[in-house]
Design a protein around this nucleic acid. Structure first.
Length: 458
RNA sequence: GUGGUUGUAGCUCAGUUGGUUAGAGCGCCAGAUUGUGGCUCUGGAGGUCGCCGGUUCGACCCCGGUCUUCCACCCCA
């Protein structure tokens, strides 16, 4: 064999067995989105770079896959321009399209572009792959599927509430134990402002986000490294040590950030959200986590993150509210909120914890044995009759040894095998073998579809 | 993007301080069983030891590069 073929780094093939399991996940997510009134939408794999760039922060821009322009993009270029050697500015002459990095920004673009056709609030769901030029690791791929549900054109916290209901329902149907953490960007802004460093909110939140991992001393170090003054860090201290239930934390917070309008707004939003959550309790624990800062640059209010309780693989679902994403595309004043399920990580979690049901999705229910030319007309008829009755049926394409045909049924986990050789056909009968029990039953051809239907329901 | 790590049969992995024909288990194929899978027994096929180059009389083993895997940082689903 010549050089073995392969797929690019960080991308994968999905075998039929894997696809059946993946579809099990997608089906549950899709069904749940649909029950909450979300409508399907798809957008192109590639977007103009002007749509993508500047939406995800500096790091995000770096991770966008760029598509080379078609044609001879070097033709108009002065050799001296190449000597200038600024690859970033040169790149804009070679490339004006990129692969989508998430589903939220293309959605915002869609909403602005089609605003006249949309009645608000607009709820859409979208299940498609996204691409990131990250260095792959376990649970981190360069091509992966996101399952997004967003509502745009409504400020109501009821949307947040329902999205958390969706998260809870999806994961309880998938049998994954999760922790749902929520926080609010306005609270984080209020904390930064109270500490006297409102302009350093990004550095402060990124550091605070590492509280769980580094501990409070580690966070102080991180803050120092990011150039936050010891003075400010000292004033941040009370926030790092807030404990207790959501209510208790918020009571403490209200005292601390009373001077920040924005912070108080954030707290009242969270109070409203938690009051809704009290009306319809979740199966999963929903916690107010003041150290939660994750999320893309564009989040402005609620932020949500979901982690698997029984496996460390990073977040498997995340989301939040963005007040001005459409503003960047020329439609200001429209707020949206959404969540995104990471199908690939959910798959990894379920595989690791053995949570997939034994039979995931469709596969062949009956195999008709091929005996050769003389019996073939009858076998074709049998196959057709079974399919007509809604039974997933295969006719073995080659008249090879029975041993081979039975091994195939065994390997494919086909539960029933239909044997209709010359003997059976003469008597207008067929023998049905149950591959699990080994039990064989002879039935008349006319009663066969009904017999199989009953057999498969047992 | 920075630093590290991995790569031997379809799969999981042995192996050699550099020395003739590189092994096991599982899987696959064939036979024992010419209309019956899963169990058992017997036999068989399958490897340019990730790729390219270097050192050497000689490289799967040493060196360099490259691709891939995984890990940490970063960031995220």
């Amino acid at each position: 064999m010549a050089q073995k073929p392969s797929v690019p780094r960080g991308t994968r093939d999905f075998s039929p067995a894997e696809m059946l399991r993946r579809n099990y996940i997608f089906d549950i997510i899709r069904r749940t989105f649909s029950i909450y009134g979300y409508l399907p939408l798809e957008t192109p794999a590639m977007e103009n770079l002007s749509t993508l760039l500047g939406k995800y922060g500096e790091e995000g821009d770096r991770l966008i896959f760029r598509i080379l322009n078609s044609g001879d993009f070097l033709s108009g270029l002065e050799p001296s321009a190449l000597a200038g050697a600024d690859s970033a500015s040169l790149a804009s002459r070679f490339s004006e399209k990129g692969l989508r990095y998430d589903l939220t920004v293309p959605f915002a673009r869609y909403v602005v572009q089609h605003r006249d056709e949309i009645s608000f609030p607009f709820r859409r769901y979208q299940i498609q792959p996204v691409w990131r030029a990250d260095k792959p690791q376990k649970g981190r791929y360069r091509e992966f599927f996101q399952c997004d549900a967003d509502v745009i054109g409504s400020d109501s916290l009821l949307n947040e509430f329902e999205l958390i209901r969706i998260i809870d329902r999806v994961f309880s149907e998938l049998k994954i134990n999760v922790l749902i953490n929520v926080n609010n960007r306005k609270i984080l802004a209020g904390i930064a402002a109270t500490a006297g460093a409102g302009d350093r909110i990004t550095d402060i939140t990124v550091a605070i986000d590492k509280l769980e991992k580094l501990g409070s001393e580690g966070v102080r170090q991180e803050l120092l490294q990011r150039g936050i003054t010891p003075d400010v860090i000292r004033r941040l201290d009370p926030f790092l040590s807030l404990r207790g239930s959501a209510e208790e934390k918020m009571t403490g917070l209200k005292r601390e950030i009373a001077a920040s309008q924005e912070g108080l707004k954030g707290i009242s939003e969270m109070e409203e959200l938690f009051s809704y959550l009290g009306m319809e309790p979740s199966q999963a624990r929903v916690e107010l986590d003041l150290s939660l800062a994750r999320g893309l640059n564009y989040y402005t209010g609620t932020i949500i993150e979901v982690k698997a309780a029984d496996m460390a693989i990073g977040s498997i679902c995340g989301g939040g509210r963005y007040d001005d994403l459409t503003g960047i595309f020329g439609l200001p004043g429209v707020s949206g909120v959404g969540v995104s399920f990471g199908a690939d990580r959910i798959y990894d979690v379920m595989l690791h914890l053995g949570l997939f049901p034994e039979q995931t999705g469709a596969s062949t229910e009956a195999l008709v044995i091929n005996f050769g030319r003389d019996e073939l007309p009858e076998q074709i008829k049998i196959t057709a009759a079974l399919r007509e009755a809604g039974i997933a049926t295969e006719l073995f394409p080659d008249a090879v040894r029975l041993k081979k045909q039975f091994s195939y049924a065994d390997a494919q986990h086909i539960p029933l095998v239909i044997i209709a050789g010359s003997e059976e056909i003469k008597a207008s009968q067929a023998t049905v073998r149950n591959m699990k029990t080994g039990k064989q039953t002879t039935v008349s051809l006319s009663a066969l579809p009904e017999f199989i239907s009953e057999a498969k329901n047992r």
